[in-house]
């Protein structure tokens, strides 16, 4: 394959090449979405919102994978019903689709587990805000230290 031939110009000169920019704009936009999801996870304290952020991140990764399977001028990888495949028709790569189908289903499983954990956290601590949870945890640890610290030979 001539994919990695020696004539490939250096990366820096690519960036102002419109073919390169249009060919990669998709990936960059996925990364913007991914980072928005990550920002929600890192910067927002509400647990439900964190789960939404994780979902956004996840979906952006799915889009990246699906875009790798796309072939220009291709169509969905479904043959005609009579199974007479026209050899001139280009089909997109079905393998990423399969992997992402599996990932979507696993994603909803993990999301539901996370949401169940949130319900339990609300029950146990009466809040789903990260800051308040941290305060409660600190108070509990301090109380434990006062009560059992000397017996255990130091702070927990």
């Amino acid at each position: 394959m001539a994919v990695k031939s020696g004539t490939e110009p250096a990366v820096a000169s690519h960036i102002f090449d419109w073919d390169f920019v249009f060919g990669h704009a998709n990936y960059w936009l996925f990364i913007v979405l991914m980072m928005t999801g990550l920002y929600i996870v890192v910067a927002r304290g509400n647990l439900v919102k964190k789960i939404v952020g994780l979902n956004i991140f996840q979906v952006a990764v799915f889009m990246l994978y699906i875009s790798i399977g796309k072939v220009t001028g291709g169509t969905a990888p479904i043959f005609p019903l009579d199974m007479k495949v026209d050899p001139t028709v280009v089909y997109s790569n079905p393998l990423p689709h399969v992997l992402i189908l599996t990932a979507i289903v696993v994603g909803i499983a993990t999301t539901s587990l996370g949401l169940a954990l949130i319900v339990r956290i609300k029950e146990a601590f009466d809040t789903i805000e990260e800051d308040e949870l941290l305060l409660i945890e600190r108070k509990l640890t301090a109380a434990d230290n006062r009560e059992h610290g000397p017996a255990m030979g130091g702070r927990a």
């Binding site: 394959m1 001539a2 994919v3 990366v11 690519h14 960036i15 073919d19 390169f20 249009f22 060919g23 990669h24 704009a25 998709n26 990936y27 960059w28 990364i31 913007v32 991914m34 980072m35 990550l38 920002y39 890192v42 875009s67 790798i68 399977g69 796309k70 072939v71 220009t72 001028g73 291709g74 280009v90 790569n93 393998l95 990423p96």
Partner: peptide, 28 residues
């Protein structure tokens, strides 16, 4: 943090084949 991570990821895409390239390694 998010900006740095994003920049690293964009750097990673520079080596990727163009979107829809029929000769990309994934299609072969």
């Amino acid at each position: 943090v998010v900006a740095v991570t994003g920049a690293a990821l964009v750097y990673g895409t520079l080596d990727m084949p163009n979107f829809g390239d029929p000769n990309a390694p994934a299609q072969l």
